[in-house]
Design a protein around this nucleic acid. Structure first.
Lengths: 153, 153
DNA sequence: TATTGACCTTAACTTAGCTTGAGGTTTTAA
DNA sequence: TTAAAACCTCAAGCTAAGTTAAGGTCAATA
């Protein structure tokens, strides 16, 4: 029986294993735990152990980040997941609905920008006070952070 | 003759005037100058003076930032403007073309994300290794920073 | 002319999202 | 059993895009 099989069947994953599987660094897992985005318990030797569903949680965190949602917002949304039982497909689906709406707004905002950028930069109207780019109607709500982090190698 | 009129007709603007007109803080103008995004010369008393086209430059910087382009990339693109003569409408238009392309890619990326996020978060495929969200084809090029900063009040 | 407001520089601080390093413990495997 | 690999904590460092503060000078105006 390999180490991996043992860990998988016993369903308590080490931090190194979770890191490798999820593609994030161990330090990131510590960081996320610190921020309250994921949870673990400790074994006798004070080492972290994880339930397998942490992998999905991390994947969802990463997907949400790619959409431009901050860790703080992600944390809030993840907090709506059930605490005791393992989240079901339906639970996860509800999350994605919330973020979809934000993503839609963001796309719409960028499209408005897209339409106007050629005219605005090229013409004389880009004077901050008059240009539609700076029009309040084009701004997203206050709760949106606006940072979109895309993945790299 | 008011101060403003004097400054405008003499076409050398003070930092405070530029700040007020462009809607950014004086410290931001210092910062931009430091980063090589804008330029000024000094009067006898070592105070900054600006040519009026700095206003458009700042407006363009802000517009580009709203599209998610970093200051470093903006600097590179601004460097393609003519150095001696005041940039023409055509010059500015060429800039907007470059950024439009980036914006198009970004929108397309978000739309792909949008299509997949419901399926991916809800289903079992979101395991980092298989999920299309993590597919290389969906990533933007290396030169894209990915940060989209939206304006607030 | 004197005072107030605008300006100067340099350095440190801010937030988000991590990463790195130091120094020490636990687990695994030959 | 013992060395190496993996883990632990805590503190400091990093990048982007600025902001704030301290201490001092210059310019506009009553």
């Amino acid at each position: 029986m390999t180490v991996q099989q043992k860990k998988l069947t016993e369903a308590n994953l080490t931090v190194g294993y979770v890191a490798k599987r999820s593609g994030v660094k161990v330090s990131t897992l510590h960081f996320y735990e610190n921020k309250g985005l994921i949870r673990s318990w400790r074994n006798n030797g004070n080492q972290r152990r994880y339930k397998p569903d942490v992998l999905r949680r991390i994947a969802v965190i990463k997907a949400a980040q790619a959409m431009g949602i901050t860790l703080e917002e992600i944390k809030q949304t993840l907090a709506t997941l059930p605490d005791e039982r393992t989240p079901t497909k339906k639970d996860w689906s509800a999350l994605s609905k919330q973020w979809q709406t934000q993503l839609d707004e963001r796309i719409a905002y960028m499209q408005r920008l897209r339409e106007r950028v050629d005219g605005c930069i090229g013409c004389g109207c880009l004077s901050m006070s008059k240009c539609p780019i700076y029009n309040k109607d084009d701004h997203l709500g206050e709760t949106q952070s606006g940072a979109i982090l895309l993945e790299r190698d």
